[in-house]
Design a protein around this nucleic acid. Structure first.
Length: 192
DNA sequence: CGTTTGATGCTCT
DNA sequence: GAGCATCAAACGG
């Protein structure tokens, strides 16, 4: 019963879920934080998505049910965390790009030794995975299961008046598609 | 300040 | 073998 509502809210298009989960809490092995920046990926029309070229061993989680965690390694050293959305077979996900730390632990600080301010602990997709202790081992976890090492605690979405929509970061294609959203008054957004 | 570049390894062609 | 949904240090003005 407790998990019925979350799954249905995540089973929509990635562009809807990306906005809806701003303000929700992401919990990892090292701590937790409030989601303040997201990007939508997927759908057959998105060439920037890992799912654009069909199902592969790596992207298989994206084609599964909503509410699952998709984690991949980027540039050989950083991890990125995504929430799978849509219906099974769609190949959609929302990349979590930044969180404001809520529960800060010693493990979190040890994983991010370069961060001087708390706000720098997780203000980027690779940084947040390091801070929360998320890596490939957590790929395919059910984010809506209270027993999971990584889970998404859905909260009231941030009001649209406090949300900015822009283009996604770091892409070589689809650079004009405005599928990135962030909380305008958050100090933990990666870039404005 | 701003921009550029090196690190590092997995994934798919 | 090329290309990354990145980060931080090293530049230059």
């Amino acid at each position: 019963m407790a998990n019925v509502r979350p799954v249905s809210e995540l089973a929509e298009h990635s562009t809807d879920v990306a906005q809806r989960i701003l303000g929700s809490i992401l919990h990892g092995p090292h701590g937790s934080g409030r989601i303040v920046e997201t990007e939508a990926y997927g759908g057959a029309e998105d060439p920037a998505s890992h799912a654009a070229r069909g199902l592969t061993p790596r992207t298989e989680p994206m084609f599964g049910p909503a509410g699952v965690l998709y984690v991949y390694l980027i540039y050989g050293m950083h991890h990125c965390a995504n929430v799978v959305t849509g219906a099974s077979g769609d190949g959609q996900a929302v990349l979590i790009r930044a969180i404001e730390p809520v529960t800060i632990t010693d493990k979190m600080r040890e994983a991010r030794p370069k961060a001087r301010r708390d706000v720098d602990l997780a203000n980027g997709p690779g940084k947040l995975c390091a801070a929360l202790g998320i890596d490939r081992r957590h790929d395919r976890l059910d984010l809506t299961n209270n027993e999971s090492m990584v889970r998404l605690d859905l909260r009231t979405p941030v009001a649209a008046s406090h949300v900015v929509q822009t283009t996604r970061i770091g892409l070589s294609v689809a650079q004009d598609t405005p599928w990135r959203w962030y909380v305008s008054d958050s100090p933990a957004v990666s870039r404005k």
